[in-house]
């Protein structure tokens, strides 16, 4: 796709939310029909970028979460970002997950070892959390992307 045809008007935050929440889409370009000379582009105008589909194939199981703190800064997940979380994907070792531990939510990299599961930060300031009992915490979903507003 040619970058030149993407409009340059800014996409405000509000619009992005609408796209994620309501399954709407962002038209690439629009044409106006002129009497006498139909635009040759009309036949191709149905194409649209759907950020919702881009973020996840399953909008029903996709949730947004606000990132606080800098524990995942090494994975380019920064405070203020919106993390895109999918509940359906089965978490595997090495994935970045949203977990619920000690009464709070946390985003960490999951590492499954022989003795226990570990929630590992991507920041040397924080130690890994060891989870070795079912009561230790739950995996709520898998982080599949990040949205950042500049």
């Amino acid at each position: 796709m040619e970058a030149a045809i993407i409009p340059l008007h800014p996409i405000e935050e509000q619009k992005f939310l609408v796209i994620i929440d309501r399954g709407g889409s962002l038209p690439l370009y629009t044409t106006t029909v002129q009497a006498g000379f139909p635009s040759p582009a009309t036949d191709y105008a149905a194409e649209a970028i759907d950020l919702n589909t881009y973020a996840s194939n399953h909008p029903g199981s996709t949730f947004l979460v606000k990132v606080e703190g800098d524990s995942m800064i090494g994975a380019y997940i920064a405070p203020g970002d919106l993390a895109i979380v999918n509940r359906e994907i089965r978490a595997a070792s090495g994935m970045v997950v949203l977990a619920f531990v000690d009464g709070g939510y946390t985003i960490k990299r999951l590492e499954i070892k022989k003795d226990a599961a570990y929630l590992v930060s991507e920041n040397p300031k924080y130690k890994p959390m060891k989870i070795d009992s079912p009561e230790g915490g739950i995996i709520w979903g898998v982080v599949v992307g990040i949205h950042r507003k500049f």
Binding site: E13, L17, D21, L64, V65, K66, L82, Y105, I107
Partner: peptide
């Protein structure tokens, strides 16, 4: 409103 309002999203640390 965890799923419909920006200000109400779950916060993860």
């Amino acid at each position: 409103c965890y799923t419909t309002r920006l200000d109400d999203l779950i916060k993860a640390y």
